[in-house]
Nucleic acid binder design. Structure first.
Length: 668
RNA sequence: GCCCCCUUAGCUCAGUCGGUAGAGCACAGCCAUGGUAAGGCUGUUGUCGUCGGUUCGAUUCCGACAGGGGGCUCCA
C-alpha cells in the first residue's frame, strides 16, 4: 500500500476521459478543458447529480460542466439570484423572515414575511435591485455547509419558516410536503446551507454558482401576495418575482418575448378586432361576443359539429338549469358544490345552474332500455355550463364563469372501451390539426390514493388510455396518482406559435356515474350489463379555444375563420362600379367580402385593412377595370401582386379556404 | 377571498406641487380622387370610476366601495 496515485481519471460527456490531480474540483476540471468553459461554468453534473463547481471529484466520475446557457445552468443562476435578492431584502428590511425562494420557468421568486406587516409595493423594487447589484459587485462566495438537524434549527432560530422546513413538519393538512422537504434535502441526516457573508446564510440544497459575481443579468418584475404552502389559511407572505439570465442578450430576448406575448394577448386582440368584450354591467368572467366574434365562434362550432356528425356522434341539447335532485344523484352536490352557483327556489323545488352536462346526457341514455347493438352511443353537445370561479382567477376568455363546452359522452360496452379511446384520441388530434395546431404533448393521470371502482377496472382503463397514446404517437408523461377519484384521464396539451403550453382536450373514463345512475344495457347473452362511460371535451371550452387560437395566430386567423376574408378597394370613385362587381362576384361564390369606398386615400384604407389583419386586400383601378384583374395585397406578403385575373384570385381563395390555409402559408 | 398595481373623451394616454382639463386616434362636415400601412381644414365629445371625509375650494390629498390587471407551491 503506497501513496495513492497523484492523478485521477474522470469521464466527460463526449466519451473521452481526462486526468486531473487528485483533490481537483469540477471547477478545476473546467479550467483544464478551456478558459471559455471555465468562465461560463455555473455548476456541474457529477454522475447525473447537479452539484456545485467546488465539489471534489473522485476516480471514475462522469462529469458534465453546466454552463449558464443550458436549462440546468439557468436554473442555478435563477436560484442563486433569488438568494441575492433575499440578502438584499434583509438588508433593506431588517427582521424580514424568509420562506422559500425557488427558480421557476424564466425566473425566480422569493417569499418573505415582513416585520410589522409591511407589504411590498412596486416602488420598493429599485432599492432592492440596487442592493442586489452591490452584492453582485462584491463577488461574494456561496459557501456550502452541512449541518445536523439540531444545528440547523439553532442556526435558523429567528427564521420560523426555515425551521419548519428543517423539521419537515406537517402543514395545516397534517401531511408532510415532499416539495418543501426537498428544498433543503431534509430527510438525509443533515441539512445544507449556503453562506454568502458572515451575516447572510440561507437554508438550501443547492447547487449555486461559485460567487455572486457570476450573476447580474436579472430584473425584478413584480410583487405579489402569496400564502405559506399556497394555503390561504396559513400566513400571507410577500412575494417578489424576478427574471435572471446568463447574459445581457438572453435577458433582452426574454423581455422581448414578454412584449410579443403582450402583443398577442387575446383580450387586446378581442377589442382591437372588435370580437368580444366583458361588460362590467354583466359581471366578471361573462363575455359578450360582437358580430365578428360571434361569427368566428359559429364557424368553429359549425366545423366541429360537422366533424362530430361525420364520426358517429349524435347531437343532443339539454337545459341550463335543473332540479337539485339530479346533482344529488350524480354526486356533484357533494364534491363539486364549491364551483356551483347558489340554488334557486322555484315552486317548492330547488334548482341549480348546471356546472356539467354529463348527468343530462345520462338521462338521455336512460330514457329507454339499451341494447348492445346500439353501442357505442356518442352524444355531443355545445353545452353551456356555469361555474363559480373565484374573482381572482378570472382571466379573459381562458377562465370564465359561463363556459360552452364541446362536450361528448360515450357509452360503450366494456370490451369496446379500448377501441373507443383509441379512435377518440385520433379524432381529437385530427380536429385540432385542422385548426393548425401541430405540437401535442399529453399527460396520463393514473389512480389516486382515494378512488372509486375496482383496481382491476382502473388498470384496464389506464392501459387502454396508454395504448391510445401509443397509437397516436404523441409524446406523453405519466402523472402518477393525479387522476380524479372516479377516473383516469388523458389531458392533451398543445404548444402555440411562441412555444407556450396550453391544456386543451380531456379524455376521461368514469367509474362512478354509470353506477350512481344504475346504467345498463342488454347484451347478446340477454343479461343486463353496465356500460362504460367516457367524458370528453375537445376544445376544452369554445371560449378558451377561441382565446388560444387568437394568441397562437396573433389574431391573423386562417382565412376560413376570418370574419372578413377580402376587402375590395377602388383606387378612386370612378372605379367604384368595378369594385362593386368584384365584391359581388366573390360574395356570390360564398366568400365574406366587402367594399371600402374611395372616401379616403388608398394608403389609409390599406392601412386599416392591415390592422384588421384581413387575409386579402384587393385594390382595383383603371388597369384592372380594363383587364378584368385585381391587385392582390395578401396578408404577410412582402410585395403586392398586380394584374391578377379575378378568376385566378377566386380559385386561389377557394383553395385556401378549402384547405383551411392562411395567405402566409403561400397556399395558392 | 387575500396581496400589489391601475381607473381622466369611444380608444391610447398626458396633466393639474388643491383653483372643475389636454393631445393623438376615432367620430361629423367640407375640401382633396389618391395604385398599396395614417391627405388637409373645421368641429363635437368628459358628472376626471362611485360614495364619503379634509378644505373657502377636490379630478388632484385621505378613506371606503366598484371595475380592471398581475400574483397566491409554474401546476393545469
Amino acid at each position: 500500500m503506497g501513496d495513492p496515485p497523484p492523478n485521477i481519471t474522470v469521464a466527460v460527456p463526449d466519451g473521452s476521459t481526462r486526468e486531473v490531480a487528485r483533490g481537483s474540483t469540477a471547477s478545476d476540471l473546467a479550467a483544464s478543458i478551456g478558459k471559455r468553459l471555465a468562465a461560463d461554468a455555473v455548476a456541474a453534473e457529477v454522475n447525473g447529480v447537479l452539484v456545485d463547481l467546488g465539489t471534489a471529484l473522485a476516480e471514475g466520475d462522469l462529469v458534465r460542466i453546466i454552463t449558464g446557457g443550458v436549462d440546468e445552468g439557468r436554473t442555478v443562476i435563477r436560484h442563486s439570484t433569488s438568494h441575492v435578492m433575499a440578502q438584499a431584502v434583509l438588508a433593506v428590511y431588517p427582521g424580514a423572515r424568509l420562506a422559500i425562494g425557488p427558480a421557476i420557468e424564466d425566473g425566480f421568486y422569493y417569499d418573505f414575511e415582513l416585520p410589522e406587516s409591511k407589504r411590498f409595493s412596486d416602488e420598493d423594487l429599485p432599492a432592492i435591485e440596487e442592493k442586489m447589484r452591490a452584492i453582485i459587485a462584491a463577488d461574494q462566495p456561496f459557501v456550502r455547509e452541512e449541518l445536523s438537524v439540531d444545528e440547523g434549527l439553532a442556526l435558523f432560530a429567528d427564521q420560523p419558516f426555515k425551521r419548519e422546513i428543517i423539521a419537515g413538519v406537517a402543514t395545516a393538512h397534517g401531511a408532510a410536503d415532499p416539495d418543501f422537504a426537498a428544498e433543503a434535502a431534509v430527510g438525509a441526516a443533515a441539512v445544507t446551507t449556503y453562506r454568502n457573508t458572515p451575516e447572510f446564510v440561507d437554508l438550501c440544497r443547492g447547487p449555486h454558482v461559485p460567487t455572486t459575481g457570476r450573476l447580474g443579468h436579472f430584473r425584478l418584475t413584480r410583487v405579489a401576495g402569496s400564502y405559506w404552502h399556497g394555503d390561504e389559511r396559513l400566513p400571507q407572505l410577500q412575494r417578489i418575482y424576478g427574471t435572471a439570465w446568463e447574459s445581457a442578450p438572453a435577458l433582452a430576448d426574454y423581455l422581448h418575448r414578454l412584449e410579443e406575448a403582450e402583443r398577442r394577448d387575446h383580450r387586446r386582440l378581442g377589442s382591437e378586432l372588435d370580437l368580444f368584450h366583458f361588460p362590467p354591467e354583466i359581471g366578471g368572467g361573462l363575455p359578450v361576443f360582437h358580430p365578428k366574434g360571434a361569427l368566428v365562434r359559429q364557424l368553429m362550432e359549425d366545423f366541429s359539429l360537422r366533424m362530430h356528425l361525420a364520426h358517429g356522434y349524435e347531437q343532443v341539447w339539454t337545459p341550463h338549469i335543473t332540479k337539485s335532485t339530479l346533482y344529488e344523484s350524480s354526486g356533484h352536490l357533494s364534491w363539486y358544490a364549491a364551483s356551483m352557483y347558489p340554488p334557486m327556489e322555484m315552486e317548492g323545488a330547488t334548482y341549480y345552474l348546471k356546472p356539467m352536462n354529463c348527468p343530462m346526457h345520462i338521462l338521455i341514455y336512460k330514457d329507454r332500455g339499451r341494447s348492445y347493438r346500439e353501442l357505442p352511443l356518442r352524444y355531443f353537445e355545445f353545452g353551456t355550463v356555469y361555474r363559480f370561479e373565484r374573482s381572482g382567477v378570472l382571466h379573459g376568455l381562458t377562465r370564465v364563469r359561463c363556459i360552452t363546452q364541446d362536450d361528448a359522452h360515450i357509452f360503450c360496452a366494456p370490451d369496446q372501451l379500448a377501441g373507443e379511446l383509441r379512435s377518440l384520441l385520433a379524432f381529437v388530434l385530427e380536429v385540432l390539426r385542422a385548426f393548425g395546431l401541430t405540437e401535442f404533448e399529453a399527460e396520463l393521470s393514473t389512480r389516486p390514493e382515494k378512488f372509486v371502482g375496482e383496481v382491476a377496472e382502473w388498470d384496464q382503463a389506464t392501459e387502454a388510455l396508454r395504448s391510445a397514446l401509443e397509437a397516436a404517437e404523441i409524446p406523453y408523461v405519466v402523472a402518477e396518482g393525479e387522476g380524479a377519484f372516479y377516473a383516469p384521464k388523458i389531458d392533451v396539451h398543445i404548444r402555440d406559435a411562441i412555444g407556450r403550453r396550453w391544456q386543451l382536450s380531456t379524455l376521461q373514463v368514469d367509474f362512478q356515474l354509470p353506477n350512481r345512475f344504475d346504467l345498463g344495457f342488454i347484451g347478446a347473452d340477454n343479461e343486463r350489463h353496465r356500460p362504460q362511460m367516457i367524458h370528453r371535451a375537445l376544445f376544452g371550452s369554445v371560449e378558451r379555444f377561441f382565446a388560444i387560437l387568437l394568441e397562437h395566430y396573433a389574431g391573423a386567423l386562417p382565412t376560413w375563420l376570418m370574419p372578413i376574408q377580402a376587402r375590395v378597394l377602388p383606387v378612386r370613385d370612378a372605379n367604384a362600379p368595378y369594385a362593386a362587381a368584384v365584391t359581388s362576384r366573390l360574395a356570390g361564390a360564398g366568400f365574406r367580402v366587402e367594399t371600402d369606398e374611395a372616401a379616403e386615400p388608398l394608403g389609409a384604407r390599406v392601412r386599416r385593412g392591415k390592422l384588421e389583419k384581413l387575409p386579402y386586400i384587393l385594390v382595383v383601378g383603371d388597369d384592372d377595370e380594363r383587364d378584368g384583374s385585381v391587385g392582390v395585397n395578401a396578408r404577410g406578403a412582402e410585395a403586392v401582386e398586380r394584374g391578377v385575373t379575378l378568376e385566378a384570385f377566386l380559385a386561389r381563395l377557394s383553395q385556401e379556404v378549402a384547405t383551411r390555409g392562411r395567405p402566409e402559408d403561400g397556399a395558392t
